[in-house]
Design a protein around this nucleic acid. Structure first.
Lengths: 236, 236
DNA sequence: CGACCTGTATGACGCGCGTCATACCCTCCG
DNA sequence: CGGAGGGTATGACGCGCGTCATACAGGTCG
């Protein structure tokens, strides 16, 4: 097995979807696909494009963005390392309904869907990995639906940050650090509000110390205080 | 094969998840599980219960309800004939996070998860059916997330009815009929608002003729007018 | 260096909607 | 038959938030 496939195989080991595979199975997957690098600001695909590859992120973040009828946009999801992007659309032979935009430099693994379906047919463990991944997605979306339901902007933003804290947060005695910059428009698009409302909320939180915006992430000194805001209790 | 299993097999043919199976595979599934009948108002399970069965609805509607911190409730989903209920929770060996409540008399098929997983391991076509079902759920939830995002109550209610029209609506020249009664509290819980707001909206729509509430369903004379309301345009 | 663009931030204003109160109708049960 | 409970409906009120306008800072490009 050559060096390139070695590198891909090493990276794929950390991807939950493939984590149940034996080393020789991983090597087989690695030999069928390829790595790709993209810059921040690049589009992986635009809405309407044909979904011919399964794409798994190895490094960096990608946001899936859809336009709204009033000319604004919403962010449907932000994907990180280890996660497939646009997988559902590919399984169903649909064109992509939204754009996929790199938020920073990105490395990804991609395999043609024909090859992927072949593997799926011949390897029940990959089917299991797929089912695990799909159930994880459904549970995440269900929780998000609950959190989005009819609540105030600041509760929704608090829940967004709590979700990031769970997923990628680094915790120590001084608080929780969430790596990864987001501008105010991205926060607004994630929770479905205006940039002005997002700015007012985050500015107020910055002044009170509830959530501090840094250059490449956010810091939460007291995550329980944020939890109270998420539940609709006043910030004190 | 006895008469009971015949009846189950006949019913299972219409379930999308099993639709790709051969008759003898369907018979095998039917022989492993059982039918059950419940009255309206019955709980299939309560939050916290162990999820030991895969449950597929053959007749009637079930709503999955979760309490909110302020003592209210939200309806996460309403399931109908042909749909599995609580399947995701079962796959992940989790206790149910929400209650399942029969909205009317219900007939269902249930199979122990041990038997289900055995079948899954030995039958790739069932794995494919499961993957199709999961992708359908994810796409539905994604669309719902988009629709719920930061909009006015009447737009959200309009989208709810459009979704029902797509799923179960009967269309003819006079308009669209949506079978299945929902009270105002259920409409409010589905879209995340208060019962007063739901009442005001549906009363106004009743007076203007946009959506008429009947004894056991709803009637929409002009579905395009409702689509305009869903997009946030004024009702005219 | 100036113009332009993007992003952060604030102010003022109007309105949709939640909250609380109240009324009425229908069904069920003792 | 009367009381209780659930559901539909309306009124009044306050406020969170979207909209529009404006200001400022920093980076990029000609």
């Amino acid at each position: 097995m050559d060096v390139k496939t070695d590198r891909i195989a090493l990276a794929l080991k950390t991807v939950p979807m493939f984590s149940g595979l034996k080393p020789e199975e991983i090597a087989m997957v690695a030999s069928l696909g390829m790595l790709a690098e993209h810059d921040g600001g690049d589009y992986l695909w635009r809405a309407g494009d044909e979904s011919t590859y399964l794409t798994v992120l190895l490094r960096g973040r990608v946001k899936v963005v859809k336009g709204t009828p009033d000319g604004g946009s919403m962010i449907l999801e932000i994907f990180g390392a280890g996660e497939p992007v646009g997988a559902l659309v590919m399984y169903n032979y649909m064109p992509y309904p939204a754009d996929a935009l790199c938020m920073e430099p990105v490395t990804l693994f991609k395999i043609h869907r024909r090859d992927f379906f072949d593997m799926l047919d011949h390897n029940p463990e990959i089917a299991r990995g797929l089912i695990r991944e799909l159930t994880r997605i459904v549970l995440t979306l269900t929780r998000k639906m609950e959190e989005m339901r009819g609540t105030r902007v600041e509760s929704r933003i608090a829940r967004l940050f709590l979700m990031f804290a769970r997923r990628t947060g680094k915790h120590d005695k001084s608080g929780t650090y969430i790596p990864g910059a987001l501008n105010r428009q991205e926060v607004a698009d994630l929770v479905g509000t205006t940039v002005e409302s997002a700015i007012r909320t985050l500015s107020r939180w910055g002044r009170s110390g509830l959530v501090r915006t840094d250059t490449d992430g956010f810091f939460i000194p007291d995550i329980e205080a944020l939890e109270r805001v998420a539940e609709g209790e006043d910030e004190t």
